[in-house]
């Protein structure tokens, strides 16, 4: 990634304009052709720097009001297998293994999004049945202080 890529990301990360030729202004600003703007975005995607180029959705506006962080205490030797099962649930948007802490025994995290609290709880219960992991807790978000996505 060179300096131009960095500037391209900075110019687009908050969203392109909703105009017929949204890349035109960006090209002009970077002093390159529109074609090069598009080629560079494609290259950034190929290199995995940009995961995808597209829309970010506002869950809240879609009635997906509940965001539950389900944390699980999974025996280390089962993490690979259990993580894969959790990732297979459509309602799970993100799933990670994180390091345990002396004061925090949970090591697997699954973000569950649903329209109601009960639906989140039901999904967590289904995951528990599917994985055999019963030591878990659901942390609903009570307030969103910030949500921006990764920026540079």
């Amino acid at each position: 990634m060179d300096d131009l890529d960095l500037r391209l990301i900075k110019l687009t990360q908050d969203g392109i304009e909703l105009v017929p030729e949204p890349f035109k202004k960006i090209a002009r600003e970077l002093n390159i052709s529109e074609e090069e703007v598009i080629n560079r975005i494609n290259t950034l995607i190929e290199h995995g720097i940009v995961r995808r180029f597209g829309a970010s959705i506002g869950h809240r506006a879609l009635g997906i009001l509940f965001n539950a962080m389900c944390v699980w205490n999974v025996p280390d030797h089962r993490v690979e297998e259990v993580g894969a099962i959790m990732a297979g649930f459509d309602e799970v948007s993100h799933c990670y293994e994180r390091l345990r802490s002396p004061d925090w025994e949970y090591n697997l995290y699954a973000m569950v999004h649903a329209r109601t609290r009960e639906e989140c709880e039901r999904i967590a219960h289904e995951i528990s049945l599917a994985t055999g992991i019963s030591d878990y807790t659901i942390l609903f978000s009570e307030k969103e202080f910030k949500k921006t996505g990764v920026r540079i």
Binding site: M1, I9, T12, Q13, D14, G15, I16, L18, V19, P20, I41, L44, H47, G48, I49, V50, R51, R52, F53, G54, A55, S56, I57, G58, R60, A61, L62, G149, V150, R151, I152
Partner: peptide, 29 residues
């Protein structure tokens, strides 16, 4: 364009742009 403007106004579409990978930009999180 009109529909996307409306969808943005009501918050269904937050933005159209690059979704970045932190690790791939050499960073850590």
């Amino acid at each position: 364009i009109d529909r996307l403007k409306k969808l943005t106004d009501i918050g269904v579409v937050r933005k159209i742009g690059p979704i970045l990978s932190t690790t791939a930009i050499g960073g850590s999180s």
